[in-house]
Design a binder for these strands. Structure first.
Lengths: 244, 244
DNA sequence: GTACATTCCTGACAATATGTCAAAAAACGA
DNA sequence: TCGTTTTTTGACATATTGTCAGGAATGTAC
């Protein structure tokens, strides 16, 4: 199916190379660093050929975003399947989120660009809906764990608060934290040596605040998260340790 | 001092008009919506004149960012001066943050653009340091309240967690939430009718999680925040109500 | 009021983008 | 091998940022 004809194969391979190179350029030079002129030159094709693969520059960026978003969803799914009480499974999601952002730090660069620019008008409905689907699935996975916790009587949310609202809080905190870490050197100047640990502590505090058992003081979450890494994300874990 | 000569006054006035119009264009069309060509045309001057005011397009954007950041810092300062126990003062900061983002929704648009684009190289050191100073001052104000709470024995942070780390968590959550609200319609689809309320609940939960007294259940924070609005931000409050 | 100095404004110019498309080239199929 | 289809090309149209020499307006001294 992949190698129907040599030509098809060549085109398919080129698309991969376009995205690889585009990600590199975007990472080093931001939106303006991704020049279709240089991209085409570097690839040894004309600019017209690039437009045969993608309708416009923005479509390339969105394709890059979807690529990593998909990877994150896959990691979330694996984490959610971890054996244990719901709160531990929630912590496993945290492990996945942190591993993801540390393994693919350029993902946030791309996300920022997508958020800042009014690129949505130019892109195809198909790709846009892919982004949204991916987002909602991630939220759904986490909300499912919250529901499990409630069903098992481990946590009761305040009046008028839905599981999705709690997930929204978790999502906001991680999203905001990673964005601040990536774009500001404020964290260093605040004397925060390990911002990821800070966020973990904050999230543990928040979950504790809703009385979700077992509470932080009754379980060694730090040790547990190490375990999750080794059990669920062995490959990613070793890759991260190599990089550091 | 302001009206030294008619000419100086004219130039000064024009700078205000440039920023006003630039903000408008940036808000409606993002980074690319701000075209110096149209800007100059609309203002009835040549593009060269714009460059007499600002070194480059990015400087205009940064100037806009600083303008609103300054306004937020001023609001934070007022909130921190509210009479009450530290936790209530912290809630007052929350009121300020929420009022700010609702009164100046375009601020986040500008912030996203600044974060996404590699504009920092092009801008002057002077403006860049203004941004950072403003950030650090906001954090400092909130961290001071946390320190007050600790000094008065209302809260004890976990081993190895600094007041700045807690502020980092609060900052992340609000930053992330406002960014998600502004750029994704996910919140609506999640059935979250009032995302600002959701964030308030999450933050209350988090502060509760650290055992900061008086706890949420012992004080009517909802009523208290209404009071803060009327006491500390009467003008902003009425302006918000008008807009809605 | 006039002449001179200074400041300010202009619009053409260079450089660099993106996106389009007719025509050329290559690949395919019988 | 030859006609058909697909793919690639590069010139073109259009738009944008930033520069700068020269000209216009303004301020100043007498």
């Amino acid at each position: 199916m992949t190698t129907r004809t040599p030509k098809k194969q060549e085109i398919h391979d080129r698309e991969l190379r376009i995205m690889e190179l585009a990600r590199e350029m975007l990472l080093t030079g931001g939106y303006h660093g991704l020049s279709l002129d240089s991209l085409a030159a570097e690839l040894g094709v004309s600019r017209g050929t690039i437009y045969n693969h993608f309708k416009c520059k923005e479509e390339i960026i969105l394709a890059l975003l979807i690529e990593t978003m998909d990877r994150r969803r896959e990691m979330f799914q694996r984490a959610a399947g971890y054996q244990g009480v719901p709160r531990v499974r929630l912590a496993a999601i945290g492990v996945a989120a942190e591993l993801f952002v540390r393994l693919y730090p350029d993902h946030f660069r791309v996300e920022q660009i997508v958020k800042s620019d009014s690129i949505w008008d130019k892109t195809t409905e198909e790709r846009r809906s892919l982004v949204k689907t991916c987002q909602m699935q991630c939220v759904g996975i986490v909300a499912g764990i919250v529901r499990d916790g409630m069903a098992q009587g481990h946590v009761t949310l305040p009046e008028g608060m839905t599981p999705e609202a709690l997930v929204f809080g978790l999502w906001s905190m991680t999203e905001g934290a990673y964005s601040i870490i990536a774009t500001s050197d404020a964290v260093k100047e605040l004397g925060i040596s390990d911002p990821f640990r800070s966020i973990r502590l904050n999230i543990h505090g928040m979950v504790d605040g809703f009385g979700w058992t077992p509470l932080q003081k009754d379980l060694d979450y730090h040790h547990m998260m190490e375990q999750v890494m080794k059990d669920v994300f062995p490959e990613e874990y070793s890759r991260l340790k190599q990089a550091w």
